[in-house]
């Protein structure tokens, strides 16, 4: 379940947590776009380095490193497929450009993962839903969205509860080799599905008992306001993305050359 930790909101107080979700979403999108526009290692490295202070400011280094470690497998796949296919299509020759490109692609993945993991780790689903609501998206949709975002940890929790109940009555799930253990998890599946359905019925029962759907328009206890810090960040992000697009077409970006390899 560690992989999901990089997407699970962690309630902390930091400047980043304090920012409006829309601001953060914009920043994540800007980072995402820039990393797509450029495939040069230099730019991607700068982008990566630029994210580090954000992660530290948000105090989410632990969760972030979990999500990167969770993605390590994918990073290796990206790196090796780029290398292998490049190598083959390059007439079986390893060049500096190929190596740099493959590394850049892996970097791109890390950057995109990090930028969205910063967003989800520092934005409570409540605020996320609020941001959607305030963008005049119908409440039913916002509700469905937040419920879906929340569903992963809820399901994980539910699964844990059932496993605990089963091993407390003698089902051995901690021993044996991988295959055996996987087989042991099968009794978990049906109750998990049944429980998920039952839970959603209970949820509906509880929600209706608290007047869910009584009024067309509902209010929200919280409200989001674009603060000064938000405005500054939004404007800078827009400037940065324009600069990036401009330089992509008008500037020559230096290429790194790895010694001992042909260019």
């Amino acid at each position: 379940m560690k992989v999901f930790e990089g997407l699970k909101f962690s309630r902390k107080t930091s400047i980043i947590h304090f920012l409006d979700p829309r601001t953060k979403f914009l920043v994540s999108c800007v980072i995402f776009l820039i990393s797509l526009i450029f495939s040069e290692l230099i730019i991607l490295s700068i982008l990566f380095v630029a994210q580090i202070p954000l992660i530290l400011l948000a105090k989410i280094q632990r969760e972030w490193s979990h999500s990167i470690r969770g993605g390590a497998f994918l990073i290796i796949i990206i790196l090796s497929t780029n290398l292998i296919f490049g190598y083959i299509s390059n007439n079986f020759q390893l060049t500096s450009r190929l190596l740099i490109h493959s590394i850049a692609m892996a970097f791109r993945f890390i950057i995109i993962t990090s930028s969205f993991s910063i967003f989800f780790l520092t934005t409570s689903p409540d605020n996320l839903s609020l941001a959607l609501e305030q963008s005049h998206i119908p409440y039913e949709f916002c509700f469905a969205f937040t419920t879906a975002v929340r569903f992963v940890p809820v399901l994980a929790n539910e699964a844990q509860t059932i496993i605990d109940a089963q091993r407390s009555r003698g089902l051995e799930v901690e021993k044996g080799n991988f295959l055996k253990r996987v087989r042991k998890y099968i009794p978990l599946l049906i109750p998990l599905i049944v429980n998920a359905i039952r839970r959603s019925l209970e949820l509906a029962e509880a929600m209706e008992s608290r007047a869910f759907g009584a009024k067309k328009q509902r209010t929200n206890i919280y409200s989001l306001k674009i603060k000064k810090a938000d405005s500054i960040i939004i404007i800078s992000s827009l400037i940065i993305i324009f600069l990036a697009i401009y330089s992509k077409f008008n500037l020559q970006i230096p290429i790194i050359q790895i010694p001992l390899l042909p260019p």
Binding site: A206, S209, A214, R218
Partner: peptide, 23 residues
């Protein structure tokens, strides 16, 4: 079974939000 929000405060506010009371 009757708690579903992400925070205690939000849970308590849920019914009132549904009634569209002023913030």
């Amino acid at each position: 079974n009757q708690l579903f929000a992400l925070s205690v405060e939000k849970d308590i506010a849920f019914g009132l939000e549904n009634l569209a009371l002023p913030r």
